[in-house]
Design a protein around this nucleic acid. Structure first.
Length: 586
RNA sequence: GCGGGUGUAGCUCAAUGGAGGAGCAGUGGCCUUCUAAGCCAUUGGAUGCAGGUUCGAAUCCUGUCACCCGCGCCA
């Protein structure tokens, strides 16, 4: 927002260095890392070090950097747009003119509204595949991290200027489905699910898997059933269609609760046949090797690429000719790029599949697809239970999503009722839902994807501290002030008061938002925005405690009301990017 | 054996190669005020270890230790 002034200052610094025969520093402005200071800084350590090298003399780099910083500071005086220039320990700090800049920031935020912070369209299309639930299985907290991360990444990329295609890829066929069907046919035929379809499907899957593991005979029967599926036996297909729908209806409920939408939903069943065709093509082209009947059909990646134990071997078809996950994935990758002209293709999949993803991408490369290099595996660590227990639907070691949401909502409702008893019951419900879902989402987005999340109820239901409710609360407070003020003045009073420290801190953070959006988008890390949301809320709370708004004298009153409006807008925008609802009251 | 990840305060985690931070837990304060889901104060650190690169390393490189995860017919 202040690039012009920064560039001017940078040019003058470069000029000074040339005139004084100094190595010009790479002028990368950084935020002054002290709270309560508003400006940018650069350092002269490189300049000093370079000078020492060239002149062949030894001196203390830190001291020399400080000398240079001081003389540059003297040379700059007070450039246009800044109110103070200071040399500190080798750094040159430039402080913005507070009144002028806070005015500019607030004007910008209020003018752009919910688009504040967004980037201009970059003309590039990216597909983000995420969620990928399996029908006929449970949906648990482990799956939740994927949905929340994928959704946030989509929101952020879109806001940053990308054309985003949100894709889901549902595992509606495969061994797990056949196992489920076998169990249903033998033990539950005719039964239909109750209200909670996903739970019921999951329970039956656990049961099916237990029977499958317990007996060799069952395994054989399941294989036989898989063969009937492969022949598209009408009876099996009909049963599959009916039971599959139950799962899909359950998923729709979940996505609606979470506020997640998809533009293109792929099914494994729709790429199974084309996948098998591709296997034939791969064999014909000598990329895949058919080792049947003794072995399976494989792509010997290390052999083909001349690598050693790096890409290993990818199995793309079972020895009995039935399809694998990989059979379908190679076909899906092609389908995605045929349907959409993609500049990037992102797969949000857990980190345990890293090798597998590289194998798929390499296979695409071997087939000659130029887009293979533009596929990216966005890996995230799994959600474990205490004691490093992996959530597993077959072992029943899961926390079901539905249980987490109802427990969190009940807890939040209890708090809303005690904090805000006069609120209408329906509104209390809405607030509780926003708080509960916000807390769940924030806890997953506020830690890096490379970190394992250990789920425990105590932490999951803790609404204090660095958590979504704190941020939502700041938003609500801002909203409350604006409600009492009856909106905010359409423009600033001519004579703007000099902002205080907490006001500056708040404006400073607000002004950083657009850059954080770009950073989060380019690194595919919502974490940056989760941190920013908290910092903003903290700065607002500080301002709230130190600066009376409604009771203040004019023109301070008007100025602060507009600042509150800008803060509310920015906090709302950040939360929206994280998929978190900002309630009007709490 | 090969590959990947993690290691920062008692615990859970942040930190664009640059001036080490939060939250929780602990201790002590603050509601007649725009909502106390809040605020203030206070306690806390050879960034696993050893080298290297650099003016400067939690961050980059090499080695090493610990834990986790992958590595041919699960997804």
């Amino acid at each position: 927002m202040f690039e012009e002034e920064q560039n001017q200052a940078a040019e003058r610094i470069q000029l000074y260095c040339r005139e004084h025969d100094l190595f010009p520093p790479p002028l990368e402005w950084k935020w002054i890392p002290f709270s309560g200071h508003w400006g940018v800084s650069t350092s002269f350590f490189q300049t000093a070090a370079e000078e020492a090298r060239q002149k062949g003399i030894k001196f203390n780099v830190n001291e020399r950097a400080q000398e240079i910083a001081q003389s540059v500071a003297a040379y700059l005086g007070t450039p246009q747009g800044f109110e103070r220039v200071e040399a500190v320990r080798g750094y040159l700090n430039l402080y913005f003119s507070s009144a002028e800049y806070s005015r500019r920031v607030v004007d910008e935020v209020l003018a752009r509204g919910e688009r504040y912070g967004s980037g201009s369209p970059n003309g590039q299309r990216v597909m983000v595949e995420f969620s990928q639930p399996n029908t006929h299985k449970a949906f648990h907290v482990g799956h939740l991290r994927n949905v929340i991360l994928g959704d946030a990444v989509c929101r952020i990329l879109e806001f940053a200027g990308w054309n985003v295609v949100r894709a889901n890829y549902i595992g509606d066929i495969g061994l797990h489905v056949i196992k489920w069907l076998w169990n249903y046919q033998n033990y539950h035929l005719g039964e239909i699910p109750g209200e909670d379809k996903t739970r019921w499907m999951g329970d039956l899957y656990a049961e099916a898997d237990r029977r499958y593991e317990e007996s060799k005979e069952v395994e054989a029967q399941v294989r036989a059933l898989f063969a009937r599926w492969d022949r598209r036996d009408p009876e099996i297909v009909a049963l599959w269609e009916k039971t599959r729908r139950w799962s899909l209806e359950g998923f729709d409920q979940i996505y609606e609760t979470l506020g997640v939408k998809f533009e293109r939903v792929y099914f494994e069943s729709e790429v199974e046949e084309s996948g098998k065709e591709m296997v034939k093509e791969l064999i014909a082209r000598g990329i895949a090797r058919d080792e049947r009947p003794e072995g399976a059909v494989i792509v010997p990646l290390d052999e083909l690429l001349g690598t050693d134990q790096k890409y290993r071997v990818l199995v793309i078809l079972r020895s009995d000719g039935t399809s694998l996950y990989s059979t379908k994935d190679i076909s899906l990758a092609v389908k995605k790029h045929t349907e959409y002209d993609l500049d990037r293709s992102i797969y949000v999949i857990d980190v345990r599949q890293s090798l597998y993803m590289q194998q798929i991408f390499k296979t695409m490369e071997l087939m000659g697809y130029d887009w293979a290099g533009r596929c990216y595996h966005l890996a995230y660590e799994i959600v474990n239970l205490p004691g490093n227990v992996t959530m597993s639907s077959r072992d029943g070691t899961v926390v079901l999503l539905d249980d987490l949401i109802s427990e969190a909502t009940a807890r939040a409702l209890e708090i809303v009722k005690s904090k805000n008893p006069e609120l209408a019951s329906s509104e209390q419900q809405m607030v509780a839902k926003a708080v509960a879902l916000g807390a769940i989402k924030y806890s997953m987005l506020s830690r890096d994807s490379t970190k394992i999340v250990t789920f425990d109820w105590k932490t999951a239901l803790d609404f204090n501290g660095q958590a979504a409710p704190y941020i939502q609360y700041a938003y609500v407070r801002a909203n409350s002030i604006l409600r009492k003020a009856g909106g905010y003045p359409s423009e600033f009073h001519a004579a703007l008061p000099e902002p205080g420290a907490s006001e500056l801190e708040l404006v400073d953070l607000i002004s950083r938002f657009p850059k954080e959006v770009q950073r989060a988008a380019s690194e595919l890390r919502p974490l940056h925005l989760a941190n920013m949301a908290y910092d903003l809320a903290k700065a607002f709370s500080d301002f709230y405690n130190q600066c009376p708004v409604l009771q203040a004298e004019e023109p301070t009153r008007s100025y602060r009301i507009r600042l509150v409006a800008a803060a509310r807008q920015t906090i709302g925008n950040v939360l929206a990017l994280l998929g978190i609802t900002a309630p009007d009251v709490m």
